[in-house]
Amino acid sequence: MSLLKDKFGNLKPGYLPKFKDFIKQISQFGGGAEDDKYINAKSFSNVYELYTYAFFIALYKDIKIDLSEDDKLIGFWEMKNWEPKALTDSLITCAIAESNFDMNALEEGDSSYMTEQIKLVKREIEAYANAGLEFIKGEIDQDPELLEDDMYFINLLSS
């Protein structure tokens, strides 16, 4: 694996502790068989699926949460394990595009600079994904029936 992909692959983006129960509620926490997702009435078969989804929803809606160093986020799984990999790569490009990540400077900088730049992307991913989680949670809290609606997560992409 190349240097940059390796660095991004080892990232463990996190979510705010307040979303823990919500994530458990709608995703198959800890993975498991795909079929279990439906048996357990979960909308997402993995936490990273929900997280990816939340990222893109927030991206499209242009909403971000300002996260500070004091926010103790819960990391869940290194990005190199997320599937599909091509989609994860696209997520990274979107985060690169939206952040102050400097591609050229990175080629000149030392390892600490690279770490700092990678962290910028991670923060960008977390800012969007947590905003997405907050948005989805807010909607479902208001109307829990949405979870019964198979179209909800599709419709949200279009709204």
Partner: peptide, 29 residues
């Protein structure tokens, strides 16, 4: 229904509105 929600990832429906962001990355690249 199962495959429908799975298609969000399998058929990349999640990227439905991603075009402007890809363009942004393209510009940066």
């Amino acid at each position: 229904h199962g495959s429908f929600s799975k298609n969000i990832f399998k058929k990349h429906w999640i990227l439905k509105n991603v075009d402007p962001f890809f363009k942004k990355f393209e510009a940066k690249y």
